[in-house]
């Protein structure tokens, strides 16, 4: 083809292309961010103004009453506390399981490795389904026991494969061999070499598990029927989906139905922020690990 200057068949210079891309990215980012931004400004605005459509871009009035009500609500506080506990236990449990499975399966000459891998991978494609699993959990007496949130998940096989690939591709085999020749046990190698050398992928797994447990409520809906054990999202179901505010709140309100209604609306917005904030604040700090970890792990899935 006969090209002159930086002209090309589509007629766009590099500069024009850049501008189009940037404008498009800004528009898309705005569309994605706006709903969250709207909830944030609505949570500190006068609910009547929110209702009247006066808070599209900026808050109207400023009040923290919604947040005060959230932190004064015993159900929401218990839910928050439960979610923190479940997230900590679940994350540690899940990452330990992933590591304990991924390391032996990453050793190429482990006898039976192929069958063991298949044993785990099969569960990715086929399962017993909701009810048979529920009945087994029930049979083991785990209903209303918080371990029902962690044990039935077993090993997160998809994540385990990513970690196994990372071990295979990113940890020098010579290093492990040298340690074995020096007489180090597999536990020592695992603990002293593999764990420290796989920090980037561990960070990814920690964040994945953390997000999953913080946001999970379905498992609790099925296995933890007791109200006092409900995690935050399940408590929020009453507020956000059923639109009901705890009776304890209603009795403390002076000013009747209108005031209660106003408070209900404010609690909706502020509880969304309270529930979403922890993960949204944490993840930009670990974002760089995602791409790195995913790339190392994704090589031939």
């Amino acid at each position: 083809m006969n090209q002159k200057n930086n002209g090309n068949p589509s007629g766009l210079s590099e500069r024009t292309s850049d501008i189009i891309l940037v404008v498009m990215s800004v528009v898309i980012a705005f569309i994605v961010a706006y709903p969250l931004y709207y909830v944030l400004i609505a949570s500190v605005s006068n609910p009547y103004d929110v209702y009247a459509g006066k808070t599209f871009l900026f808050p109207s009035g400023f009040t923290l009453d919604g947040y005060k009500a959230v932190f004064a609500d015993n159900n929401l506080l218990t839910g928050f506390k439960n979610s923190v506990i479940y997230t900590v236990i679940g994350t540690v449990f899940s990452v330990v399981m992933i590591y304990l499975t991924a390391y032996p399966l990453s050793i190429k000459d482990l006898p039976g490795r192929k069958y063991l891998s298949l044993f785990f991978i099969f569960t990715m494609y086929f399962g017993g389904g909701l009810i048979p699993t529920y009945l087994i959990v029930k049979q083991f007496g785990l209903i209303n026991n918080i371990w029902a949130l962690f044990l039935p998940g077993g090993v997160a096989v998809g994540n385990m494969i990513i970690v196994r690939n990372y071990f295979e591709n990113s940890i020098p085999k010579e290093l492990l061999e040298a340690a074995r020749i020096d007489g180090a046990s597999e536990w020592t190698i695992f603990y002293k070499l593999v764990v420290p050398l796989s920090k980037p992928i561990m960070a990814v797994m920690l964040v994945y598990s953390m997000v999953a447990y913080w946001n999970d409520w379905f498992t609790a809906l099925i296995y933890l029927p007791g109200v006092e054990k409900a995690p935050l999202p399940l408590v929020l179901r009453n507020v956000l989906i059923k639109s009901s505010v705890a009776a304890s709140q209603a009795s403390t309100i002076s000013g009747g139905y209108a005031e209660l209604n106003k408070l209900t609306e404010m609690i909706k917005f502020s509880s969304i922020i309270v529930a979403a904030a922890p993960m949204l604040i944490i993840f930009p700090f670990v974002q760089k690990y995602f791409e790195k970890g995913m790339m190392a792990g994704a090589v031939k899935g």
């Binding site: 913080w214 946001n215 956000l240 969304i272 529930a275 979403a276 949204l280």
Partner: peptide, 10 residues
């Protein structure tokens, strides 16, 4: 990173 519960609430 937001729970489906929160998304449906929104």
């Amino acid at each position: 990173f937001i729970s489906i519960m929160i998304v449906c609430g929104m």
